[in-house]
């Protein structure tokens, strides 16, 4: 399965096992602009899988109402870039309903799926990574998978989690990431980071699409092509880098990250969103507080520049393997 098929598979299971589950959003009935809801309307009927008018605040508000009645609302925002009209509903309403009602009402059944991150030619409004904007919205969970297996397990967990979840799907992976995904019903835990490759010299932390740029950077580091070899000292090529996929942005798995940094003494955080106000800043602050005496180099952030994503400039804006590689080298030699 590729990632969009895995997402579809998760929703199909959710609809099959939970009579109260519905899927809705703009253009989801014919299968969705990224094919994530292919055939669901035919399989489960238009009462359970349906189009909404083109209004993001309406989609979020409608989903909150459904979830407040104990139903399972799986809503889609067509691109994460267009989630801002729903920001009020998500931050002021969804995130706060349990708290403000003294626990009497909740919208735990709400999951908002939305495609995120760069696609190579998305320009300003088809490339954004808005996870950082939601980081201060206590009450929400934010989840970003890196692969089809992850997408299915984390989406099913998000749908069943007793809290409203924003589930951001890296859109460039919809077709490009392919792996064998178990067809049965399974979940992966939220708020749990995953160590992809263990290491002792540096912690490399990321989520979503940049996981692959990080892997590329690590391959180049250990086995550089001739063109890059002069920049990579022999002594660093055998460095053991611990690569971590954060998976849940809020509430994030500080324990795994801090443990790793205490061991390695060095941290590079990679994300596509702009650096200022990005999630990397929050992580860096917590790490310097809890691993201060173990740090051997400053926390390094490799992020988008603090600019919008200009269309023709994208290759120089989005952090790619060479920028990650450079940050690793500088941090290792600090």
């Amino acid at each position: 399965m590729n990632l969009y098929q895995a997402v579809r598979d998760a929703m199909s299971i959710a609809l099959l096992k939970d009579e109260n589950a519905v899927v809705f959003g703009e253009d989801v009935a014919f299968g969705g602009v990224f094919r994530c809801t292919m055939g669901l309307a035919e399989e489960f009927g238009r009462e359970r899988v349906f189009n909404t008018p083109l209004s993001e605040q309406g989609i979020a508000g409608f989903g909150i109402g459904l979830a407040a009645m104990g139903h399972t609302a799986i809503a889609e925002i067509q691109f994460a870039d267009y989630i801002y009209p729903a920001f009020d509903q998500l931050v002021n309403e969804a995130a706060k309903i349990r708290y403000r009602s003294g626990g009497q009402f909740n919208v735990g059944g709400l999951t908002i799926r939305t495609p995120t991150m760069s696609v190579g030619h998305g320009g300003l409004y088809h490339s954004q990574s808005p996870e950082g904007f939601f980081m201060g919205a206590a009450g929400l969970k934010i989840v970003i998978p890196r692969s089809p297996i992850q997408a299915k397990g984390l989406l099913l967990a998000s749908i069943r989690d007793p809290n409203p979840v924003i589930f951001m799907e890296p859109k460039i992976l919809y077709r490009s990431a392919v792996e064998h995904v178990p067809v049965d019903d399974f979940t992966l835990p939220l708020s749990r980071a995953e160590i992809l490759t263990p290491g002792t010299d540096l912690t490399l932390l990321t989520w979503g699409t940049p996981v692959y740029h990080c892997e590329t950077a690590l391959r180049i580091l250990s086995n550089p092509p001739p063109s890059l070899a002069p920049h990579i000292p022999q002594s660093l090529r055998s460095a053991k880098i611990e690569l971590i996929d954060l998976r849940t942005i809020l509430p994030w798995d500080a324990e795994t990250v801090i443990e790793s940094v205490k061991k390695t003494g060095r941290l590079v955080v990679v994300h596509e969103a702009g650096k200022t106000g990005g999630v990397g800043g929050e992580i860096a602050a917590e790490v310097q507080k809890k691993a201060f005496l173990r740090m051997q180099a400053p926390v390094r952030r490799v992020a988008g520049w603090d600019t919008p994503v200009g269309l023709q400039y994208e290759k120089f804006i989005i952090p790619d393997a060479v920028r990650i590689l450079d940050a690793i080298l500088e941090t290792l030699t600090y």
Binding site: V22, Q57, G58, A60, G61, F62, G63, I64, G65, L66, A67, A68, M69, G70, H71, A73, D88, Q89, N92, E93, K96, I97, R100, S101, Q104, F105
Partner: peptide
């Protein structure tokens, strides 16, 4: 349903509630 200060947020929510009904 518990009142909240942000105006009109309850209006599309009411539609979701109605759909649940």
């Amino acid at each position: 349903h518990t009142i909240s200060s942000p105006l009109a947020t309850q209006i599309p929510q009411a539609t979701g509630v109605a759909y649940a009904l």
